[in-house]
């Protein structure tokens, strides 16, 4: 019996030792929480720095002028690819604008609380696109992001700018853009936008089937391009 008691007596010691861990956890959690709070505070401050720009007349969010100032501070052009990647990471819904919720969640995601971190992040942003699946996600995001609100298709000059940005002067894409210049097309539909990605990434122009499922604009482009190649 006594043995049994001694055993039970021993027991609290071990449990007592264990009790220290939650304490540590709590401390860690507390620390994390304060960290989080601090981070949130920094992010909020970061946000406030660019939000509510009087010229934007868009209270409660970062508007175009705010973004312009942000770009100046980041030492990048507003048309730089990294700004598009940023918008994608932040899941921004309107071009050249950031809502507070987007900013706050997004900055946490990319772990940037201030201009220095973000500048550093921007310099490596395009590395995130090395993975084709990520690039495809960004590509799909771009159409809706760049498209003016309330329109079904992307105006042609915006579409061209986006393609230039995404494909960074890829020769084939430049040919495509040259071709678009010869047409009277005013806008790119969602289907045409998505199909171009597939076309560009999978199709060999020499065995293209014009009766296939690609949109007509791509059929026409292939015909034009083959003619060009013949002339060259």
């Amino acid at each position: 019996m006594s043995e049994r008691w001694s055993m039970t007596r021993n027991a609290p010691i071990t449990t007592g030792q264990k009790r220290h861990a939650p304490d540590d956890e709590a401390v860690a959690a507390k620390r994390a929480k304060t960290n989080e709070k601090q981070q949130q505070k920094k992010i909020d401050a970061f946000y406030q720095k660019y939000a509510n720009e009087p010229k934007d007349t868009l209270p409660g969010r970062i508007g175009p002028h705010g973004v312009k100032r942000l770009c100046r501070d980041l030492k990048v052009q507003p048309t730089d690819l990294c700004m598009l990647v940023l918008a994608w990471k932040l899941e921004a819904t309107v071009s050249c604008e950031f809502m507070y919720a987007e900013w706050s969640a997004g900055m946490k995601k990319i772990d940037c609380t201030g201009i220095r971190a973000l500048t550093k992040w921007c310099s490596t942003a395009d590395l995130a696109l090395a993975n084709p699946a990520d690039f495809k996600k960004l590509y799909d995001f771009t159409f809706n992001y760049a498209k003016p609100l309330g329109q079904r298709s992307l105006p042609i000059e915006l579409a061209i700018a986006c393609w230039r940005l995404l494909y960074r002067g890829n020769a084939d894409v430049e040919q495509w853009i040259t071709y678009l210049g010869t047409t009277t097309k005013l806008g790119i539909t969602s289907d045409e936008w998505t199909s171009f990605y597939d076309f560009h990434s999978t199709v060999n122009i020499n065995n293209y089937d014009a009766a296939g499922a690609f949109p007509i604009i791509i059929d026409d482009y292939v015909e034009w391009r083959l003619n060009q190649m013949r002339m060259e």
Binding site: R152, T189, S190, D191, E192, A210, A211, P215, I216, D219
Partner: peptide
């Protein structure tokens, strides 16, 4: 003609 059908498919997707 196939082209016209394709055009109509695109219209319907739109």
């Amino acid at each position: 003609d196939v082209r016209m059908i394709k055009k109509c498919i695109e219209l319907l997707i739109e």
